[in-house]
Design a protein around this nucleic acid. Structure first.
Length: 655
RNA sequence: GGCGGUGUAGCUCAGUUGGUCAGAGCAUGCGGCUCAUAUCCGCAGAGUCCGGGGUUCAAAUCCCUGCACCGCCA
């Protein structure tokens, strides 16, 4: 604890390869790094957070050619896209490195020379299958019918000389190091994977390309006919960004590096990089933290203006904080997860709007109502329930402090949400509105509301690394004007630290609920699908004055298949008060579940003429499938079924 | 073909070292409250923890095997 204030944390994302635009994978890695770094800052640690772009190599040259520009113009543009993407996601990196930066290039050459001088780089000639069109070597297995897949031409056998790094020499050392430092690569599954790689003999790493083949790279300092090949160049960004070898940042932040990468680049980071570090005479980084993939469920992404919404766009649709929260809450760090708009909306509604937003809203509303909006003192000595809530808040803080350094973001968030649930329960138990009715309970009411305000403040502080905007918004309303990066757990996270008498501001909802049906309507193109959450057979809410709905076109109306039907069978669904299972003849027999049991006895329904929606999506109610919906009008307590003036042939359409 | 992973309630998934681990959230049903964003609180549901075999006093958790899906490498 004494030393925690001097703890230093260097957080990195990979430098992203600029042959494509930023996507959700990049966003996740970067947001994780941001949350991690922000958290440590909150804990009072010294932090440095690095991201950037990797800009050399033949794929870049190809992409640039395709775009019809020279490589420099191309990488400037794409690198800019990355650089601009992060602030939009509230990512606050301390530095943005580019491998085309002169400073970086200098360091790469310095390390190459150093490793070369140490005899760990050698020159060697080998033969391979080379496609002239692609200007690259192919492995046997990459060929299609012995031909280059791109050029449909047989590659020629060609001899080439290149420089190699004696990686194999460090194999035993690396195995030993990983064994000795179980947390070096985490989670464990990835450590095991690296160890599995290392069971096979490690080959030396080719680190150069002849200039006639690839000129877009860092020239080797000891042979200018060659440029450095990507990984040796790229990985070094982690130290070049710190001003290696003699920069002040380097002295401060190496080797306390926390690398964060997706599993696709486990090998370069788990094997190449440590051996390069070792050969260069540096200390190994502290941790390699590896995460899984987001599987995008395209089918669940809504369409807007005819184009598929890209995940990153959802950040602007639903808010950056909701997006960040979703990514960190939904994925168990290390494992793969599904990404869908539906899941995002669900999290937003359930966790952010209902649990957090509503607690904040009800707390401020009561402060406003009972104390004129001024933060009350702890008027009465806290009851056990109050003390218990305070304890739970502190426990939440404790658990967040334990989980985040271990990359247990979802657990940290769960801990915060448990606290919120306790707080909501507390409101219910204590019932401040009852206390408010009795003047004698005033001091007690003060304590209750103050306790709630403190919990909200705690939530605001704990949530700061994850949702900086929300945190600031909450704190501002509680009278604390601070940038999220300025918060310190030790001070701002202290129970009871709110200033009495400070005016709080009620304001608008933190997270407005997303109406799922409305959303679908809004997003729907001409061919709207029926709202899937519509309860078949359930009576509509029944307000005295139903609000007018938006006009729909006749085309839209025609999509509703309304039919006359006759009830053939009817029975109660066990354990349900409202539901009946009906078999209705609408030209064919349909099983329909209807929420009319409270107003209609099953036996009275047999033979009755009714109107049903025949093309409603099937749904299951109490485990019974319903293929359609019976129409009825609720008026007061009564429920009247729609019918025809005189009996008509079952299956006739209404129009 | 080799290596690795995954398979747990309708859905999405948690489950440290084997013994209150049969769980959470959502969804669903019922009930309660009214401060609040139709929000909140309580209660309920039985899922062969993929199948089969084994180790053990004890396995979702270890071993073997089969099936399904997914990665990486040949």
């Amino acid at each position: 604890m004494e030393q925690s204030n001097s703890q230093k944390i260097f957080t990195t994302t990979p430098i992203y390869y600029v042959n494509a635009e930023p996507h959700i994978g990049h966003a996740y890695t970067t947001i994780v790094a941001d949350v991690f770094s922000r958290f440590h800052k909150l804990m009072g640690h010294e932090t440095y957070f690095l991201t950037g772009t990797d800009e050399h190599g033949d794929k870049i040259v190809q992409a640039a050619e395709k775009a019809g520009v020279d490589p420099k113009t191309y990488v400037d543009r794409i690198s800019g896209l990355f650089r601009e993407a992060w602030p939009k996601l509230n990512v606050k990196n301390d530095y943005f490195i580019r491998t085309t930066d002169p400073d970086h290039i200098r360091v790469v050459q310095y390390i190459l020379q150093k490793v070369h001088d140490a005899g760990e780089i050698y020159f060697s000639t080998y033969k391979g299958l080379y496609c002239v069109g692609c200007e690259r070597f192919y492995m046997e297995r990459e060929l299609v019918d012995g031909k280059c897949p791109d050029h449909d031409a047989a590659p020629i056998e060609r001899e080439e000389s290149n420089y190699f790094f004696r990686m194999s020499k460090y194999q035993d050392w690396l195995i030993e190091y990983i064994m000795q430092n179980p947390d070096f690569i985490r989670p464990e599954r990835y450590r095991n994977e690296v160890l599995a790689f290392l069971r096979e003999p490690l080959e030396d790493l080719c680190i150069s390309r002849p200039k006639e083949r690839l000129s877009w790279g860092v020239p080797l300092p000891f042979d200018d006919r060659y440029v450095t090949y990507v990984w040796f160049d790229a990985l070094i960004n982690y130290v070049s960004a710190l001003g290696y070898p003699d920069g002040e940042l380097f002295r401060k932040f190496w080797p306390v590096a926390q690398h964060i990468v997706a599993k696709d680049i486990l090998k370069p980071h788990g094997i190449y990089w440590p051996t390069i570090i070792k050969a260069a005479g540096l200390e190994p980084y502290q941790h390699l933290n590896v995460h899984g993939y987001w599987k995008i469920n395209e089918g669940k992404m809504s369409k807007s203006r005819g184009t598929v919404v890209r995940p990153l766009d959802l950040a602007s649709v639903y808010g950056v904080d909701a997006f960040r929260y979703f990514l960190l809450r939904e994925m168990v760090f290390g494992l793969d997860s599904n990404f869908s708009e539906d899941a995002l909306v669900q999290r937003l509604n359930a966790d952010l709007a209902n649990d957090l937003g509503n607690l904040f809203s009800r707390t401020l509303a009561m402060t406003d109502k009972y104390f004129g909006g001024k933060i009350p003192p702890f008027g009465a000595e806290p009851d056990p329930v109050d003390a218990e809530l305070a304890r739970q808040a502190e426990e939440a803080a404790q658990r967040v402090a334990e989980e985040v350094p271990e990359f247990g973001f979802h657990k940290a968030l769960m801990a915060i949400w448990e606290m919120l649930n306790h707080a909501n329960k507390y409101v219910d138990q204590v019932g401040p509105w009852s206390l408010a009715k009795d003047p004698a309970s005033f001091p007690r009411l003060q304590t209750v509301i103050r306790t709630l305000l403190e919990v909200n403040k705690m939530a605001a502080v704990l949530v700061a690394p994850f949702m900086p905007e929300t945190s600031e918004k909450m704190l501002a309303r509680l009278g604390i004007q601070k940038d999220a990066t300025q918060l310190r757990m030790a001070d701002d996270g202290k129970w009871g630290s709110l200033a009495e008498g400070t005016e709080v501001r009620k304001g608008e909802a933190l997270f407005p609920r997303i109406d799922v049906n409305k959303k679908e309507e809004a997003a729907a193109k001409p061919k709207a699908a029926p709202a899937k959450t519509e309860k078949a057979g359930a009576a509509p809410p029944s307000p005295a004055e139903a609000p007018p709905l938006e006009p729909i076109s006749f085309e839209t109306f025609k999509k509703v298949d309304l039919r006359a039907g006759v009830v053939k069978q009817a029975e109660r669904i066990p354990k349900s008060k409202k539901l009946l299972r009906l078999i209705v003849d609408i030209g064919e027999e349909r099983q329909i579940v209807a929420g009319i049991a409270e107003s209609h006895a099953p036996e009275d329904l047999i033979g009755k003429q009714i109107i049903v929606v025949a093309n409603l999506e099937p749904a299951k109610l109490m485990g019974v499938e319903s293929r359609g919906m019976v129409l009825a009008v609720r008026d007061g307590d009564g429920l009247q079924l729609l019918t025809t003036e005189k009996p008509v042939t079952p299956g006739r359409r209404a129009s």
